[in-house]
Amino acid sequence: MLSRSHRIDLEMFEGPLDLLLFLIKRDELNIYDIPIAQITKDFLGYVELAKELKLHSAGDFVLMAATLMKIKARMLLPVEAEGDEEVEDPRTELMNMLLEYKRYKEASSAFAEMERHERPHYYHIPVAFSPQQEDQTAILEDVKLYDIMLTFQYLLKNFEEPVTHAVAVEEVTLSEQIGFLQGLLQSSPKLSFANLLERFESRLIVVVTFLAILEMLRNRQVKVKQSKLFDDLLLSRGSKFEN
């Protein structure tokens, strides 16, 4: 049974550390000297609630509950000091975690304040107006790796594995596909990734070819352009392209 004090909207806490900070503040506890038995008891009540509410972060609460119980057990055990070594308080690590989290939580409210301040200001995102643009497809010059990954994921979705009955081992290596792409780029300066995909029959080759592109991108052998997110990737020779 849940006591009334647990009926706080658990979802308002950002996780177990946030909840612990709340309990410490509410009960005016000393963060240097946290009464572990008391706080563990309170915390467990919330964990039950988290499980009941099927919060997606319930696992994190359970983990913290285990940590608290471990600390509690260690505090009950008699400590045997070895030599001059000072015995560390079992609560120290938890205290440090709480303090570190508190710093960023405080900073996040400063961010919320800055956001509130900037929200009412709008700026204009210009769109180039020129119907005879030379290369209409290459608008996004600054394609980020994340965009490329998203696009690949999207393109791969359309790439259904054909139903085949004979099983054959396909041998395709990264260096083979790099060589293959280099050959293609030598004969044509621009390549469409979507067109490239049409040549392949298996997902494996598609994936290896994509890895080859990433590798070549890293070595500056290719450049990738995209007109908008999820659009085709346009490959061209990079600054370190080898002939």
């Binding site: 950002e14 960023y104 996040s108 409210s109 961010f111 956001e115 929200r119």
Partner: peptide, 14 residues
């Protein structure tokens, strides 16, 4: 208007 960032996103960003 603009969507505000959640507390979780703000903490992560911080």
């Amino acid at each position: 208007g603009k969507l505000r960032l959640s507390q979780a996103a703000l903490e992560t960003l911080a």
